[in-house]
Amino acid sequence: KRPMNAFMVWAKDERRKILQAFPDMHNSNISKILGSRWKSMSNQEKQPYYEEQARLSKIHLEKYPNYK
Rank of each mutant, 00 (worst) to 15 (best):
Y50F: 11
E14C: 11
L61F: 09
Y49R: 04
G35L: 05
S57L: 13
A21I: 13
L19G: 03
A54P: 03
E51W: 04
M4W: 06
R16M: 15
L19Q: 12
S31I: 12
K1Q: 05
I18E: 00
S42P: 03
P3S: 08
M25P: 01
A54H: 09
Q20F: 01
R55A: 09
I59T: 13
F7K: 08
S42D: 08
F7P: 02
L56V: 08
F22T: 12
S31V: 11
K58R: 10
R15C: 10
F22V: 07
A11K: 00
K46E: 01
N66T: 09
K63N: 12
N27A: 13
E45T: 01
M8R: 10
E14M: 15
L34Y: 00
I18F: 03
R2M: 12
N29C: 12
P23Q: 02
N29D: 15
K63W: 06
Y50K: 09
Y49E: 01
K17H: 05
K17R: 08
Q44Y: 09
W38A: 02
E51C: 03
K68N: 13
L56A: 07
Y49G: 02
W10E: 00
M25N: 05
R16E: 14
H26F: 07
Q53R: 06
A6G: 07
P48M: 07
A54Q: 08
L19E: 12
P65F: 07
K63T: 11
Q20I: 06
S28E: 14
P3N: 15
I33G: 01
K12E: 11
K39C: 03
N5H: 04
W38L: 00
R2A: 09
Y67Q: 14
I33Q: 03
K32D: 09
M8L: 08
I18W: 00
I59A: 14
I59K: 14
N66Q: 07
L34S: 00
K58P: 08
K12H: 10
Y64N: 15
E51L: 04
Y50V: 09
K68C: 13
R55D: 08
G35V: 12
S31G: 06
Q20G: 07
N66W: 06
A54F: 06
S42Y: 03
L61E: 15
N5W: 02
I59S: 13
E62K: 09
K46T: 01
H60R: 08
Q47D: 06
Q53V: 15
E51H: 06
E14G: 02
R16T: 14
K68T: 09
D24R: 05
I33T: 04
Q53W: 11
I30M: 05
A11N: 00
Y67F: 12
I33A: 03
H26E: 13
G35I: 11
K39T: 03
N66E: 13
K32G: 06
E14L: 15
F7C: 01
K1E: 12
R15K: 12
Y49K: 07
P23R: 06
D13S: 05
Q47K: 10
F22D: 13
P23D: 03
K58H: 07
Q20C: 07
N27Q: 13
S57A: 14
P3C: 02
Y50W: 10
L56W: 06
L56H: 09
P48L: 04
Q47S: 09
E52D: 05
K17M: 04
K12V: 11
K68Q: 11
E45V: 03
K12N: 10
P23T: 01
D24E: 10
F7N: 02
N66H: 10
I59Y: 11
K46Q: 01
M8A: 15
Q44T: 11
